[in-house]
Computed example of a mutant assay.
Amino acid sequence: MTPPATPPARTRVNGPYTVVELAGEIDLATAGSVADHLDAATASAAVDVLVDLRGVEFFDCSGLRVLCRAQDRAVRGGGRLRIVCDQPYLRRLLGATGLLGRFPPLASLPDGLPDRTP
């Protein structure tokens, strides 16, 4: 079951992909809502989750923790979790925390996927 859209997160399924779109500030105050969406997205086996961070303005360690936990869960279930990110500051954050290798960002969604929901 997909959680309802909340200010920082919305989930949509398109073909084999589950896209979790994040926007605004991802911090201690919003990490719980993000975790709800990522928990739902990684609940099944062999999922292919794309976390779209292109609408994020701020991202702290609370968001990184939630991403790491969701990726672990996806991999344990035989799936994967990838991020879509075009902001240099998020790439620097991933690099500074040693997570760039774990989350090599895609610049855009895979071909054929609509860019963002309205």
Rank of each mutant, 00 (worst) to 15 (best):
89 Y>R: 14
86 D>E: 09
73 R>S: 05
90 L>W: 08
2 T>E: 15
4 P>F: 09
92 R>C: 07
71 Q>H: 09
116 R>A: 04
41 A>E: 06
6 T>L: 13
96 A>I: 11
49 V>F: 01
21 E>M: 05
66 V>H: 01
26 I>P: 13
100 L>R: 15
116 R>P: 03
104 P>F: 07
32 G>I: 03
92 R>Q: 14
9 A>C: 06
78 G>P: 07
71 Q>I: 01
77 G>Q: 05
103 F>E: 04
1 M>C: 15
9 A>W: 00
4 P>M: 11
14 N>S: 14
92 R>G: 10
31 A>H: 02
52 D>E: 00
12 R>H: 12
63 G>D: 04
100 L>H: 11
57 E>Y: 04
47 V>W: 00
25 E>T: 14
102 R>A: 15
115 D>I: 13
23 A>D: 12
94 L>M: 08
105 P>K: 06
84 V>L: 01
90 L>V: 11
58 F>R: 10
37 H>T: 05
102 R>I: 14
13 V>Y: 03
87 Q>V: 10
71 Q>T: 02
18 T>R: 04
101 G>L: 09
85 C>P: 06
48 D>G: 05
102 R>F: 09
44 S>R: 10
4 P>D: 12
30 T>Q: 08
71 Q>P: 02
66 V>I: 01
112 G>L: 01
40 A>Y: 00
50 L>I: 02
110 P>N: 05
73 R>P: 01
25 E>H: 13
111 D>E: 15
68 C>V: 13
15 G>P: 07
67 L>N: 08
34 V>N: 06
80 R>W: 12
94 L>E: 06
52 D>V: 00
6 T>E: 11
94 L>H: 10
71 Q>C: 03
90 L>I: 14
7 P>F: 09
75 V>D: 08
55 G>F: 00
19 V>P: 02
57 E>I: 02
112 G>A: 05
13 V>M: 08
99 L>K: 08
22 L>T: 03
115 D>F: 14
97 T>K: 09
41 A>T: 04
56 V>I: 01
8 P>H: 03
17 Y>R: 03
100 L>M: 15
9 A>F: 00
83 I>L: 07
85 C>Q: 11
51 V>N: 03
61 C>S: 14
116 R>V: 04
95 G>V: 08
11 T>A: 12
31 A>Y: 01
91 R>Y: 11
3 P>I: 00
28 L>Q: 12
46 A>W: 15
95 G>I: 06
